[in-house]
Amino acid sequence: MELKDKVVIVTGGGQGLGRAIAEFFAAKGAKLALVDLNQERLDQAVQACKKIGVEARSYLCNVADEAQVIAMVNQVATDFGSLNGIVNNAGILRDGLTIKVRDGEMSKMSLENWQAVLNVNLTGVFLCAREVAAKMIELKSEGVIVNISSISRAGNMGQANYSAAKAAVAADTVVWAKEFARYGIRVGAVAPGFIETEMTSGMKPEALEKMCSGIPLRRMGKPYDIAHSVGYIFENDYFTGRVLEVDGGLRL
Rank of each mutant, 00 (worst) to 15 (best):
103 D>L: 07
176 W>F: 14
165 A>S: 07
122 L>I: 01
196 E>T: 12
51 K>G: 09
190 V>K: 05
18 G>A: 09
45 A>E: 04
194 F>D: 00
132 V>C: 10
12 G>K: 01
17 L>Y: 04
37 L>R: 14
163 S>V: 01
249 G>A: 01
110 S>K: 08
34 L>S: 03
124 G>H: 02
239 F>V: 15
30 A>I: 09
157 M>F: 14
184 G>K: 11
39 Q>F: 00
99 I>K: 14
70 I>C: 01
184 G>C: 09
145 I>K: 06
184 G>N: 06
21 I>T: 07
32 L>R: 05
51 K>T: 14
135 K>G: 03
57 R>K: 15
173 T>E: 04
73 V>T: 06
88 N>C: 11
247 D>V: 10
84 N>V: 03
230 V>W: 01
123 T>Q: 08
221 G>M: 08
153 R>V: 03
40 E>D: 14
245 E>Q: 14
74 N>G: 15
22 A>T: 00
181 A>L: 10
114 W>G: 06
7 V>E: 07
119 N>K: 13
159 Q>V: 05
246 V>H: 08
131 E>S: 03
8 V>S: 05
2 E>Y: 13
38 N>W: 08
49 C>R: 00
86 I>Q: 09
213 S>N: 13
139 L>Y: 12
110 S>R: 03
27 A>D: 12
211 M>K: 13
45 A>C: 08
233 I>S: 02
105 E>C: 00
59 Y>D: 08
36 D>W: 09
51 K>N: 14
56 A>V: 00
16 G>Y: 03
126 F>V: 11
12 G>W: 00
142 E>F: 09
32 L>F: 10
19 R>A: 10
28 K>R: 15
113 N>Q: 11
160 A>L: 02
136 M>F: 11
88 N>M: 07
134 A>V: 12
75 Q>I: 01
48 A>T: 13
87 V>F: 03
246 V>M: 11
146 V>D: 11
18 G>L: 08
236 N>H: 13
225 D>E: 15
233 I>N: 01
15 Q>R: 15
48 A>K: 15
162 Y>K: 03
33 A>T: 02
144 V>G: 10
69 V>W: 08
185 I>W: 06
110 S>G: 10
220 M>C: 12
3 L>W: 10
152 S>Q: 11
183 Y>T: 00
224 Y>M: 14
244 L>Y: 04
27 A>L: 11
143 G>I: 04
126 F>Q: 02
168 A>K: 01
131 E>Y: 12
15 Q>P: 10
6 K>L: 09
182 R>P: 05
74 N>L: 07
77 A>N: 00
86 I>T: 12
231 G>W: 01
100 K>V: 00
19 R>S: 07
69 V>A: 06
203 M>Q: 07
37 L>T: 12
